[in-house]
């Protein structure tokens, strides 16, 4: 590149622009510009990729929304974490079901004195094998992506217990020890499944933080000798309303929005969070008056 204006700057006067690097367009824009540049220098590649996939304006909007979310309505952030983790919880269950079916097949086939030659098989053994294959197929249908991630590192030519029902059943039937069948452990060790246990705690925890901070406010007002009944009324009604709004929007949004695209999720969560925050603010302002008029009418 040539003929750049004098002011393109990143650590030094730039004569060429390189990809994935932030530049200041005006060197004279003082300390703020420089500190921003320093912060961005580490993240430039991520930001570029994000901008390409979501569009530059959306990246700006998203960062504003997530900053606001962190400050205000913490109970909605937990839902994104919980959403994926619930699917992973079901994945572990499906793996366990497959493992149980394989172990059953193993017991049945061994108790019948079944040898390596496959010449005879009673109907019980046949049924157990069908059950194991069905469990594998169910798992394969619902969790194809996750299974591929778990199996992608394996180099076994004949397949592993988790990649093929044939391999699983033949290992169940003829292997001398059951170590290879303990797929629950192999999969559990995999990062994907680990994530679900960690993140589920995160999901519920954030709702508790929101609730806890409201209780804290009421307690503080009690300690300060103010009208804490009123504060309790305000806090509880705004919590209930914002939780209801968020849950209703999420439930119905899922039923009717296409959530296959990542942007669809962002919209849904932003709308639910926005609704919850709106309700929270509105009731915080107005339920105080309602409490006062209620108390006046009761006296």
């Amino acid at each position: 590149m040539c003929c750049l204006p004098d002011d393109y700057y990143n650590g030094a006067q730039a004569t060429q622009l390189t990809a994935n690097t932030p530049y200041l367009l005006d060197r004279d824009s003082a300390g703020l510009g420089h500190s921003v540049l320093n912060q961005l220098n580490g993240q430039a590649r991520k930001l570029t990729e994000l901008s390409f996939s979501l569009g530059a304006d959306n990246v700006m909007a998203l960062s504003a929304v997530s900053a606001k979310l962190k400050n205000e309505s913490s109970n909605i952030i937990g839902t994104t974490a919980s959403l994926y983790t619930d699917k992973m919880g079901n994945f572990s269950k499906a793996i366990k079901a497959y493992q149980d079916a394989l172990m059953e097949y193993r017991d049945v086939s061994r108790s019948q004195g079944y040898h390596r030659s496959m010449s005879t098989s009673s109907s019980a053994v046949r049924q157990a094998k069908q059950k194991a294959i069905a469990a594998f197929n169910r798992m394969q249908e619902r969790f194809a992506v996750e299974l591929e991630a778990v199996n992608s590192g394996s180099k076994a030519k004949r397949g592993t217990v988790l990649s093929s029902a044939e391999r699983g059943t033949s290992i169940a039937r003829s292997s001398r020890s059951v170590a290879k069948l303990d797929i629950s452990n192999q999969a559990k060790a995999h990062d994907l499944v680990k994530f679900s246990r960690y993140a589920k705690g995160l999901g519920n925890g954030l709702a508790l933080i929101d609730f806890g901070s409201r209780i804290g406010k009421v307690h503080n007002s009690y300690l300060a000798g103010e009208n804490w009944h009123r504060k309790l009324f305000i806090e509880s009604s705004s919590f209930a309303a914002s939780a209801l709004t968020a849950s209703t929007i999420m439930s119905y949004g899922l039923a009717f929005f296409t959530v296959a695209t990542p942007l669809g999720w962002v919209c849904l969560i932003a709308v639910a969070a926005g609704g919850a925050m709106l309700m929270n603010d509105y009731l915080q302002e107005n339920s105080g008056r309602k409490y006062d008029s209620l108390m006046d009418n009761l006296r």
């Binding site: 309303a241 209801l244 709004t245 209703t248 709106l278 309700m279 009731l283």
Partner: peptide, 17 residues
């Protein structure tokens, strides 16, 4: 109840805003 209350309060909050 939950749906009507939510919609009503949400509409109220939006109208106020």
């Amino acid at each position: 109840f939950s749906l009507t209350t939510t919609l009503m309060l949400l509409a109220l909050a939006l109208a106020d805003a």
